[in-house]
Design a protein around this nucleic acid. Structure first.
Lengths: 225, 225
DNA sequence: TCGTTTATGAAAGTAATACTATCATTTTAT
DNA sequence: ATAAAATGATAGTATTACTTTCATAAACGA
């Protein structure tokens, strides 16, 4: 089994899900199920049934479904970060680097994370729909102290650094990149479900290009001195 | 009792909460409680206890807590829209109008919605923390058909129209204003809880000015021809 | 003022959720 | 071969998200 292993924070699990077949089945099936049912209707019972295991067994890996969600989402951002590092390897111009990262962020061509099993498109949809719910909670400070938002912060920081390379005087690099990341994860959701909120037309083959155009405009016009 | 009545969609309630004292107490106390507990830990039982009523009575007004949340949030956007219409009344220049709306959006000086009872700051925090959860669900299309997102769409549309008045050729007015609205509702949350994601410093007396500066930059640089 | 809707309260009940605990069995590691 | 660890099976608890029923109180209309 080909795998990309990412150092997801150990505080997120009780037993490492990558260390066993059952653990990996929990990860793969939970991505599928959360994407299908939505996080609020996803339960460990349903997950256990789907993988022919039991609730008790799932609870041995993850304390609760919130932590499992954090795990999956951290994984997504680590994976994105990894793909960023690959595409910028051969580019020296910071503006080119930023554009390349933007393309990776928006790309609909997603390689499998495991050669089989985990569905990267489902994971991306899951992040789009559920990411904000992970920190818009009353436990955000506790979770944050444990470092569960580090992977997202790292992505944001990396992009912000590129912005500063382009214009070292720009005063809001993190705020801007954070805004861009959230907009990127949401606009396609709007295009599909609340089209009057966006000018991007829902069209699986072209909307990512429109979104790319918008975000490039937004970033490069805003940061120019 | 001085009140600003807004035509919140009738599909959101079973019995009009503005029509009785109990109904108004439900609204006021639910704002307080959701702000205090967060939406996931808010229950009709707790609400009923807080107003010395019963679960059954609350259910006679709202089908479930999701609908109650939608009601409160719709109310917020209707109220914002109303404040927009007031500040732009005496302004003719579209750029000035847009800036004035931005100030209203970010302003921390919030008049009471009812002379007593409903806490507007708590309502604003509630919208910041919970708004996205109302549409990032599997029922978004059903809810949308019922018109429950109309007030937010109206705000977005109004701002987008101002953008087009400034630059009729700008191709993404809705996408941009939607992005701005979301950023505005989130950045102060970041400043407080996840400061490394933003350059805005948490400081109750100044952060809204910093955010205003960022958003003005973002909007006016992006839309200039 | 009487009678009748209508709103609320009180209490009980149900199905699902989010866990926890116990113990037997299987798998794995030594 | 034996001990340790992982899993399955089953049961149990507290809470949530409702629904139902019935009694009482307030409001309202003739």
């Amino acid at each position: 089994m080909t795998s990309l292993w990412f150092p997801v924070s150990q505080t997120l699990y009780l037993r490492d899900p990558l260390s066993s077949l059952l653990g990996r089945r929990i990860l793969m099936e939970s991505v599928r199920l959360i994407d299908e049912l939505g996080f609020e209707h996803f339960t460990f019972k349903k997950l256990a049934d789907a993988i022919n295991s039991t609730e008790a067994s799932v609870y041995r890996y993850f304390e609760n479904k919130h932590r499992l969600l954090l795990y999956l989402i951290d994984w997504y951002w680590l994976w994105l970060d990894y793909r960023f590092s690959i595409v910028i390897q051969n580019l020296v111009n910071p503006a080119e680097r930023l554009k390349a990262c933007l393309r990776v962020l928006l790309s609909e061509e997603l390689p499998g994370i495991y050669s089989e099993g985990l569905d990267p498109k489902a994971l991306k949809r899951l992040v789009m729909a559920e990411f904000e719910k992970t920190y818009l909670t009353k436990q955000v400070d506790r979770d944050n102290k444990e470092g569960v938002f580090i992977p997202y912060k790292a992505v944001c920081k990396k992009l912000a650094a590129m912005v500063l390379e382009i214009n070292p005087k720009f005063p809001f690099p993190h705020t801007l990149m954070n805004t861009v990341l959230l907009s990127a994860t949401h606009q396609l959701f709007y295009a599909e479900h609340l089209p009057s909120l966006t000018d991007i037309k829902f069209n699986p083959h072209h909307h990512d290009r429109q979104l790319e155009e918008f975000l490039k405009l937004l970033i490069f016009k805003t940061i120019e001195p």
